[in-house]
Computed example of a mutant assay.
Amino acid sequence: MAASADPAHWRGLHHLALVTADMDATVRFWHGVLDARLVATIAVPAFRHYFFEVGPGCSVAFFEYAGQELDSFAKPAGVPYSRAAQFDHLALQLPDEDALNRMRDRLKAHGCEVTDVIDHGFLRSIYFSDPNGIALEASWWAIDPTGRAADHADERLFGDPDPVPAVRELRESGQVSHTVSTRLVDGIIEDLRREGITLNYPR
């Protein structure tokens, strides 16, 4: 199955929605430490929703729910943890190694713990956390695989010696043989309704 005769025209990350228990600390870290400008805010009785720019048209946004106890956790990037079933860490892109070193120095200057630069071959990274315990990475592409045709046989970029079947199909024919279908997650909506919470959730 080819990618598409009419491409989707993705333009990057619009926003990734995360959760904070302390929006003030979140603004002070994301805007003040990381220099990811606060560019928009929404507030309704149930929540605040603040957006931080991480590139043209791209943002990371946080919800702060009113009167809601949060069962939060913190974990390092890439470390298995049963409570982190769907989200591991967020990696933000920088243009080159100099910018990566400057971000590492900026984090240290603000009293934030951060790793040394890690060489992953096709990318270089540093790792740190935000005040919510969200594992963060800042990276630059040493070999940028985006914006060009993919060579699935290039071992510099495709280093898994035993890839999943879909990657084998891409390597052999340039397309996947079939796709998968998904469904909306209604279970939690029903749980909330039983607790007397009604959401406007269009189907």
Rank of each mutant, 00 (worst) to 15 (best):
R203C: 01
V19D: 05
A2C: 14
Y50D: 09
E172G: 07
L107G: 01
E64W: 04
V33P: 00
Y65E: 11
D119C: 04
T146M: 11
R171Y: 08
D24H: 12
V180H: 08
P80W: 06
F158R: 02
D88K: 03
D191R: 12
A85E: 11
A2T: 15
W140Y: 15
G187P: 00
G67K: 03
D144K: 07
P165E: 07
A17N: 11
K75T: 14
P161W: 04
P7Q: 06
P45V: 06
G174Y: 10
S72E: 12
E64S: 05
L90E: 03
T41A: 12
Q68K: 15
F29C: 00
R106V: 01
T115S: 13
F63C: 02
V114Y: 02
R148N: 05
V27C: 10
A109L: 06
A99F: 02
L157R: 00
D162F: 13
R193E: 11
A84V: 03
S125P: 01
K75D: 13
H89V: 06
L18H: 03
R193K: 13
D71G: 10
Q86C: 14
G133M: 03
G187M: 01
R11C: 08
Y201V: 06
H120V: 01
A142N: 10
E155H: 10
R83P: 00
D130T: 04
N200Y: 12
A142R: 13
V164C: 11
R124N: 10
A109G: 08
A84G: 08
S4W: 08
D119H: 05
L199F: 00
Q68Y: 13
R148W: 04
L90A: 07
A8P: 04
M103D: 00
P7R: 06
R148V: 06
